[in-house]
Write a protein that binds this DNA or RNA. Structure first.
Lengths: 345, 345
DNA sequence: GGACAAATATAGACCGTTCCATATTGAGGC
DNA sequence: GCCTCAATATGGAACGGTCTATATTTGTCC
């Protein structure tokens, strides 16, 4: 026996033909058993299953993907894993897809972009049946291209707002209103909003303004662009607190920016919530950390994920034409970062 | 324009044959152009590339995967996206894989497990050429099975420690020593360690003990199982601070547990770092948040990712037999959560 | 000018499935 | 006993690439 036989042999994986031969049936029948098709006799089914077990047969995904039109796989485009607000959304989405026999395939557009990879193309290239875009990513053109061949659903983002794609988001206007009203009801009169980017930023700003106007307050007394990061929330709040006309309450675009605001307050020797109340948005696990304990708008991400999954499944099953927009209700989670103005510690 | 044209037509993707026809060449030549093979004349190459562009042709991954042995795709198994320590690791890994023409395919074993999906199997099923396990996941058996057919590299974890798999981790023993020494050098004598789970937990504990013993201190004066979460760090620290023999310094298994410790200290009215110093591990972005400003051991995750990528590429190219273990050096990032004991604010 | 090698192009088998069209079998119904 | 229909089983053509073996063209050297 030649020694080259020893470890070099790559041990070809058994194929459906090997199984068929071993079971003494046609490969078609094996295929039917695998797909749990009806009209297969119990006796044959058993024989085939035994052969599969004995050979340790595993179907080849590429071959299957090639001959079937569908791959039962859905691409999920994430962006910036550093900000883990999407985790619950992903859970709802995965669970829903799973009920329809679909598997999610994740891609991280942030990292991909840094290393010069086009993540949407890579996903499509993997043969995904549909795409769920989670959160705002900078790949609009690629997403649009993808939408020409497969269904696309946007979850937790409104950009890019293109005709063929469903959108599932929380009700940003309502969420922003409730956050603002919370501060107003606590007695705050001088309230700032740290604005965020994109369509969502615009809507949250609108909600803030509406709530302020409803209460007869000036929404634009303080206005700062807070961006999405802790850094920018910090910088914006520093600016706000620099003058002697200071807000007593801040409603930030998201939790990260709100945490930046907390830091800025601490820097100025202001204590939260005694001297300054802060409200965030996303109700991420960051807000829940005791050390931070941030009042925050919960955007129902689990529900967003579930609905996005449903929309995608519908589009996969029937060719839905029109864009649909689903708003998930928000709720306010009150924690230790808000109190009436001037409250003693 | 008939409205039925809008979205209903599934528009069959052009194939290599369509391109060949359009360019007036054989499909073999198109294939050669796609693979950038030598011995193709410039004129023909140009014609083919034009046809590709005009038709918007995209090669079909399944077909390619079927006829080639390799898919140039590497599965990356993540666990618990809530704790985003792995982000930099992923960046190093993706970049390295990319240089070898490999694409990462992500899976989230935490969510998958919740919904009853076997993520490793799903990845293998997608036809990945190799697997990188990032962080500790509970899928040991499945990983072992996968290792029988494809190369597996563990990054940022030592479990499951099985013969055929390379391991890339930071030097936990050294990292734990440096964190402990830092506290000792600041003058702390009563130091607690919040223990973490697994092999890594054991090593960090060992490093802590060694550093304490070197300084002639009792390593087991305080001993708590801190777990991996903020919650468990909080609970453990509550217990430590309950008695009147209190530690003045705490070295936690990871940043999350350390943040739990910060919260517990605040609950007890102890100020950090004046009354209690806290050191974390991972140097995650949480530690960097100003509001938290946690001294933490940096485990060089970027380098871990890079090395894991290199190992995998090597295993893909040559059949490496033996297990290799690569230790990445750690460094201590000192921030505001540590100071000499009893320091005035 | 012919021989030979190198460069370039092509045909067609093959990868491992799915699934359609076509047997084959068995059970009733008349 | 024959015909029909349903239930089972099978052969073989896709699916869209890669790659080997072979054909054709071009260039070089005597």
């Amino acid at each position: 026996m030649p020694e080259s036989d020893a470890g070099a042999r790559p041990v070809r994986q058994p194929t459906i033909r090997d199984v068929a031969e071993r079971a003494g049936v046609s490969k078609s029948l094996v295929s039917l058993v695998l797909r749990e098709a009806p009209h297969v006799s119990d006796s044959r089914r058993r024989v085939v299953l035994e052969a599969i077990a004995e050979l340790g047969y595993r179907p080849n995904a590429h071959a299957r993907g090639l001959s079937r039109t569908r791959s039962d796989t859905v691409g999920v485009l994430l962006h910036d894993l550093r900000n883990p607000w999407f985790v619950e959304l992903l859970e709802g989405l995965s669970a829903t897809l799973h009920t329809a026999g679909l598997s999610p395939l994740l891609a991280d557009s942030y990292t991909d972009r840094r290393i010069g990879r086009r993540s949407v193309e890579a996903l499509v290239h993997q043969g995904i049946d549909g795409l769920v875009v989670v959160g705002t990513t900078p790949e609009s053109e690629a997403i649009q291209t993808a939408a020409e061949s497969i269904p696309v659903v946007l979850a937790g983002t409104r950009d890019p707002n293109l005709p063929g794609m469903d959108i599932v988001v929380d009700d940003d206007d309502a969420g922003a209103r409730s956050a603002t009203r919370h501060l107003i009801e606590l007695g705050h009169r001088h309230i700032a909003h740290l604005r965020g980017p994109g369509e969502i930023g615009t809507l949250r700003l609108a909600g803030f303004r509406a709530a302020m106007a409803d209460a007869g307050l000036d929404p634009d007394e303080f206005s700062e662009n807070g961006g999405m990061s802790e850094e920018s929330g910090y910088a914006a709040t520093r600016r706000l607190l620099a003058g002697d006309n200071r807000p007593t309450g801040i409603f930030a675009f998201n939790d990260l920016a709100a945490i930046g605001a907390l830091s800025a307050a601490a820097d100025q020797g202001l204590s939260v919530p005694a001297d300054l109340s802060v409200v965030g948005y996303d109700n991420s696990y960051l807000a829940r950390i005791r050390h931070i304990s941030l009042t925050s708008v919960d955007n129902g991400n689990l529900a967003v994920g579930v609905q996005a999954g449903k929309y995608l499944i519908e589009r996969l099953e029937a060719s839905v034409q029109l864009q649909r927009i689903h708003l998930v209700p928000t709720s306010l989670e009150v924690r230790g970062s808000t109190a009436p103005p001037g409250t003693a510690r």
